[in-house]
Computed example of a mutant assay.
Amino acid sequence: MTAAGARPLRKLGFLTIGLFDEADPRAGHEATLKLMELGEQLGFDSTWVRHRHLQYGISSPIAVLAAASQRTRHVELGTAVIPLGWENPLRLAEDLATVDILSGGRLNAGVSVGPPMHFDRVRRSLYPDTADTEDFSHTRARRLLDLIRGEAASDVDGFEGFEEFSRRVQPHSPGLSSRMWYGAGSLSSARWAGEQGMNLLTSSVVKAEDATDFAEIQLSHIRTFRAHHPDGDRARVSQGLVVIPTDTATASQRARYEAYARQRTPRTT
């Protein structure tokens, strides 16, 4: 970010993919939870997990964060990000609210939209009957937001025998809506996030539109987001950075890092 757009860092967190060995998945998940505990002990403000479907990483961040909520007390718990193409917004709203309640209001839920990765190969398993009609646009995220904010999910309420029903998602966590984040990589998605009153997650994956310099691209997204957010310049932005340790890396490791960075350049600029 340019000097003109720089601001003091307010909070510092870290993100983990939560890798594990297929032969012993428990050990990897336990290591992730211990890392979160250590992060709290070291004084980090937040700890975040990434979503990995059909891979050897965290496929159920909500379950992992539910466990983390009982092993930590202060550190904020985040998802960066949950791809909504894999999710039912109503069920996800219930899960997110439950974890937020369990954690005492420490959940930061980051989401994004778009078709699931390798959708043509997974559609028969994920949406066997509705693949051609599923909506992967911002409308899916809007449905999730509305449900988390307490809008009606049903027209059934009151008692039916001994069962009591609610029109809105339960449990309802009033503060969660202010901790909803959107992972944006373009000007249009940054604008949409601002218009919805969400917080903005930005990282190294951005779309070059009005500029080719990475810092200028990212700054344009942040400015667009804040220009359309009800809170204006006070709207929250999180900048994700990839830290590559080169001080103790071997020559072959540095070569791999450099090759990987060159491969990603077209995506980020």
Rank of each mutant, 00 (worst) to 15 (best):
L219K: 09
G232T: 11
G114M: 03
V75F: 05
T139C: 01
E40V: 06
P8E: 14
E160C: 03
E76V: 04
V113S: 06
S220R: 15
E134P: 01
K11E: 15
S186D: 06
R191T: 10
R262E: 07
A211F: 10
P115I: 14
H138E: 09
L144Y: 09
S46A: 15
D45V: 08
R254Q: 01
F162Y: 03
T98C: 06
G28F: 10
W192A: 05
A255K: 08
V242E: 13
S238T: 08
L15M: 13
T2D: 15
I17K: 04
A211D: 13
E37W: 02
M198Q: 10
G185R: 05
I222W: 08
L65K: 07
D45E: 13
D231N: 14
Q239I: 11
D146N: 10
L102P: 01
T133N: 06
R167T: 14
L126N: 04
G158H: 02
G185D: 07
A27F: 00
A153F: 03
G13D: 10
E37S: 06
V75C: 04
A208L: 11
P245L: 13
G105T: 12
S166M: 00
D45Q: 07
D129T: 08
R50G: 14
D21W: 06
L15H: 13
Q263V: 02
I62Y: 04
D100I: 07
L187R: 05
K11C: 01
G105V: 13
V156K: 07
W48P: 03
R50T: 15
E160V: 15
L54A: 09
N108C: 05
M117A: 04
L176E: 08
R7E: 12
N88Q: 06
I58M: 08
V205C: 00
S137H: 08
S166A: 10
A153I: 11
M180Y: 04
S188F: 01
G78E: 14
L33S: 06
D157V: 00
W86F: 15
H53E: 10
L102R: 09
G158F: 02
I58F: 10
L144M: 11
R236P: 02
Q218K: 12
R256P: 00
L9V: 15
A31M: 11
R143G: 00
A208F: 14
Y182T: 03
S59E: 14
G57Y: 13
P128Q: 07
W86S: 03
R226C: 07
L145F: 12
E22W: 09
A109V: 13
